[in-house]
Amino acid sequence: MKEYMFLFRGGDSVTMKQSPEKWQAHMQRWGAWMGALANEGKFVGAQPLSREGKHVIGTKKAVTDGPFIEGKEVIGGYMICKASSFEEAMEISKGCPILEFETGVVEVREITEMA
């Protein structure tokens, strides 16, 4: 079993939050998706991320506001889970509720060891 990190981008939580019922149902599907993984012992961890943040860049440690204003670029959260192959990880990612949005993106990356 390897571990994979899923990075969630895009989606439109701002519009969806205008309808609390829709938002709650949406969040329940996130819970169900991760809960099912937990039942199979594949869920390692997940956290949503705040939209605000800064970049600290290079040797000068310059601080910028970064590209956070552009919604679809922003990483909205991450999840780490176990899967036996990259293919399985891809299958898991297809159940992610971020894909209920046209702009939703799941980036699937295998966690490796430092050489």
Binding site: M27, Q28, W30, G31, M34, G35, A38, N39, G41, F43, V44, G45, A46, Q47, P48, G77, M79
Partner: peptide, 15 residues
């Protein structure tokens, strides 16, 4: 599983 779900902001309240 419960312990891990409780540590996640996505699943804590539902769990």
């Amino acid at each position: 599983g419960e312990r891990r779900l409780l540590t996640s902001g996505y699943t804590m309240s539902g769990t």
